[in-house]
């Protein structure tokens, strides 16, 4: 294993050294293919990001795929209603590993302004794990770009070996989650209890 000092010294001499892990992550993080999947208002900002002014192509992520089978990243852009939640989980299940989720906007994080609604899911992380949350209603395109860069950093840090290796390299980590069913008053189950723990609020 080369240390960082020697590495930079070598690169000054025109010799690039790398590890398999680094080049694998470098390739992955610069070609994220998002699922072209808009739910509500935030989807318009998502489209705006891929258009000329904000130009998501600079990050190698402009290839919006209509099929979950070809996508690495799901941008949950907008309010997830209870009627839509099973479909969102199913789409997530259909995506191949490694897969990532950005929860875009207040609604996808927590229900947002529509939290009081009887048909609104209070955050998509009740059913699927989320990698990056972006607040905002809707978040500005710059915020989505920031989320992309955060995700790229996260991918770049992922390990292929050892104790803390990435979830997609481990066989004991689930890659599919239970699809909720429509019930008489609510979804059944209302949340994925293994994946999601309610936040504990300590009031002083």
């Amino acid at each position: 294993m080369l240390d960082d000092g020697l590495k930079s010294e070598l690169s000054k001499q025109g010799i690039v050294t790398t590890t398999f892990e680094e080049i694998y992550n470098w390739g992955r993080k610069n070609s994220i293919w998002p699922l072209g999947f808009g739910l509500a208002c935030c989807a318009i900002e998502m489209i705006a990001v891929s258009m000329a002014r904000y130009d998501l192509a600079r990050f190698g992520a402009e290839v919006f795929r209509p099929s979950p089978r070809q996508a690495d990243l799901m941008i949950v852009a907008g309010t997830v209603t209870k009627k839509m939640a099973p479909q969102v989980v199913r789409l997530y299940n259909q995506m191949p590993e490694p897969k990532y989720v950005i929860a875009m906007g207040a609604c996808a994080i927590s229900g947002g302004p529509f939290k009081q609604g009887y048909n609104v899911l209070k955050g998509i992380d009740r059913f699927i794990p989320v990698d990056v949350h972006i607040p905002g209603c809707p978040p500005r395109p710059e915020a989505l770009i920031h989320a992309f860069m955060t995700l790229q950093e996260k991918i770049g840090r992922q390990k292929l070996q050892g104790e803390n290796r990435a979830p997609h390299t481990r066989s004991d980590m689930p890659s599919e989650f239970e699809v909720p069913q429509y019930g008489a008053h609510d979804l059944t189950p209302t949340k994925n209890t293994q994946e999601w723990v309610p936040p504990v609020i300590v009031r002083s």
């Binding site: 009627k83 048909n119 209070k122 429509y182 008489a184 008053h185 209302t190």
Partner: peptide, 25 residues
Amino acid sequence: FMWDEFEDYPMRKDYEDPDDYEYEP
């Protein structure tokens, strides 16, 4: 708007929301 299995009429004034959120700041 709601799914077919749904039983309530949610816009009625006496409709009780499902208890589905944990805390409110």
